[in-house]
Design a protein around this nucleic acid. Structure first.
Length: 301
DNA sequence: CGCATTTGACCGGCGC
DNA sequence: GCGCCGGTCAAATGCG
């Protein structure tokens, strides 16, 4: 809030990097096997870099975990960012205001799951949702208590920048938009989406960077408890490819389509439905251990 | 008609 | 305590 007013530019994590003189355009090695060039930005900030690097080291895992558009047909993932919003970061650390902390409403800082698992330092302002809301409806009496309790059980988040003209990127899942809000210090609104699958509480936020309108900041929250619809198709396509003679010829066009939409998933082995979209914490956050090695205090310059 | 989107209202957390 | 803000709800509307 006030911090945003002071540092409106800190809003944009991309800018955050740029301001630090971070060269853009470096390619994630782990994405080299991908069909599309995915560019990212590696931070020069030891802290940030260690985080992003740790992320990058297993971005495939992350993207797999979220079945997210690691590579979108019409976009480039510029930078995966572990999301841990606003006051969680900005505030505490007193995190270098001059260098503009990736802040609030949007992106994040390296802390996500570490903090999440630690109860997010309990300072989250973020309400913990879906469950919360359902519980609230079902148990109005315990509403407050539950909220407070669950508040600590923050959903894991993962944010990344994508260069795209399209706000809502196709990631294989079906989403229902349930809200849109104007973002402070940004002419672009933030859209809120919820996975349409039953009992799936995954949400995502999509907003366009006001610093670079070509960049879309997508934040995923939670874990899918179902298989990615697109993966089914992708697996089918992959099977077609691997499968001799069969469909190969006839599916060439199909795989091409799949490739365009969900190229990465074609590179992934078929997943057990239980693992597909509900990865372990380690899977989701391979950098977890590193994060633990980088407690909040360490982020303070 | 069913589903998705839009949009104003509402709520809770946080800073001052 | 008040105001701001982010996040969500839900009625209205649009669309296929």
């Amino acid at each position: 809030m006030s911090s945003e007013e002071k540092n409106p530019f800190q809003y944009n994590p991309f800018n955050y990097n740029e301001q630090r003189g971070i060269p853009a355009g470096s390619v994630f090695p782990f994405l080299n096997d991908g069909p599309s060039p995915v560019q990212t930005i590696q931070g020069s900030d030891p802290l940030y870099m260690s985080f992003t690097e740790s992320l990058s080291m297993d971005y495939n895992t992350l993207s797999r975990a979220f079945c997210m558009p690691a590579i979108c047909s019409s976009s480039e993932v510029i930078s995966p960012i572990q999301a841990y919003f606003s006051r969680e970061i900005g505030a505490p650390a007193g995190a270098d205001e001059n260098t503009s902390t990736p802040d609030s409403s949007s992106i994040s800082s390296p802390s996500n799951d570490a903090a999440t698992q630690q109860g997010a330092a309990g300072k989250s302002k973020e309400k913990q949702q879906p469950k919360e809301y359902e519980d609230a409806k079902e148990n109005s009496n315990n509403k407050v208590k539950k909220k407070k309790k669950e508040k600590k059980e923050r959903e894991a988040r993962f944010a990344f920048l994508t260069k795209s003209e399209i706000d809502h990127l196709e990631d294989g899942y079906r989403w229902r938009k349930y809200g849109q809000k104007a973002v402070k210090n940004s002419p672009y609104p933030r859209s809120y989406y919820r996975c349409t699958s039953q009992k799936c509480t995954v949400k995502k936020r999509v907003e366009r960077s006001f610093q670079d309108p070509s960049m879309v900041i997508t934040t995923y929250e939670g874990k899918h408890n179902h298989q990615c619809p697109a993966t089914l198709r992708a697996n089918y396509a992959a099977a077609a490819i691997l499968s001799p003679n069969s469909l190969l010829a006839s599916t060439s066009s199909m795989t091409s389509i799949s490739h365009q939409s969900f190229p990465q998933e074609l590179l992934l082995p078929p997943y057990d439905i239980n693992n597909q979209c509900e990865p372990s914490a380690d899977m989701l956050y391979p950098s977890q251990q590193q994060l633990h090695l980088l407690p909040a205090d360490d982020f303070v310059p």
